[in-house]
Amino acid sequence: MIALSAIRTRPTSYVSGLLIAIIAIAAVFAPLIAPTDPYALATVSILDGRLAPGGEMLDGTIAWLGTDGAGRDVLSAILYGLRTSLTVAISSAAIALTIGLIVGLTAAFYGGRLDTILMRVVDIQLSFPAILVALVLLALLGKGIDKVIIALAIVQWALYARTVRAAAMVERRKEYFEAVTCLELSNTRIIWRHLLPNSVSSLIVLATLQTAHSISIEATLSFLGVGVPITEPSLGSLIANGFDYILSGAYWITFFPGAMLLATVAAINIFGDQLREIINPRLAK
């Protein structure tokens, strides 16, 4: 509640929050808002390919933002792609964060050998290039949104674990922590009430960065030919595919999804920053 009222007093967070809300609604209700279904192959035709913004498709629909190379209405593709990109980014961030939180806090709290082992696992994980993990996973599992989510979660969890542990370690060394442990509170309670809240500010910074980052990674995977299926493009794959046409002047295929991506990621980032300042008690005046 305190956080909510704080949001109201900060216009930047208000605006970015509103933007996120609009984007989220647009993504959730894409099938209702979008003029066409860009994933229904029987109605998408390459004969409609690369229409300039405002062009009329064969079935009479106006493509306000043009069409892509496969003849999908770019506006509809953006709305659906947004859905895919957000699903991928949020789900993978949530999974990675959960794993990272558990591992990081456990390591920091128990310390000793467990900490050493866990941190070595983190080291191993961090040294895996994301592209190889994705390639191996997609080779084993096939293409698909769920596989990309798994791949991105595996790529990211270690970073969360490391950050949580680093923050918690600093807390652990502080004088008050000794006082807390002396109170003989249960382990869960100590972790939950003392280690966790103090990791939150760095976690939020990381989570916002990572949400943005995972959208980029997903786009990069598409660029390298793995990732989501070509017939169901995400924002990232729309940009990647559209780039091939930019030298020939069909800027809209890559520009509009790119703009949408930037807007989304920027909104999330700004909101995350604001939230961090609100939550971090030391910054609250």
Partner: peptide
């Protein structure tokens, strides 16, 4: 910085 983080490297 927000911009820098948001643009995919390859693009």
């Amino acid at each position: 910085s927000v911009l820098g983080i948001s643009i995919p490297t390859f693009w």
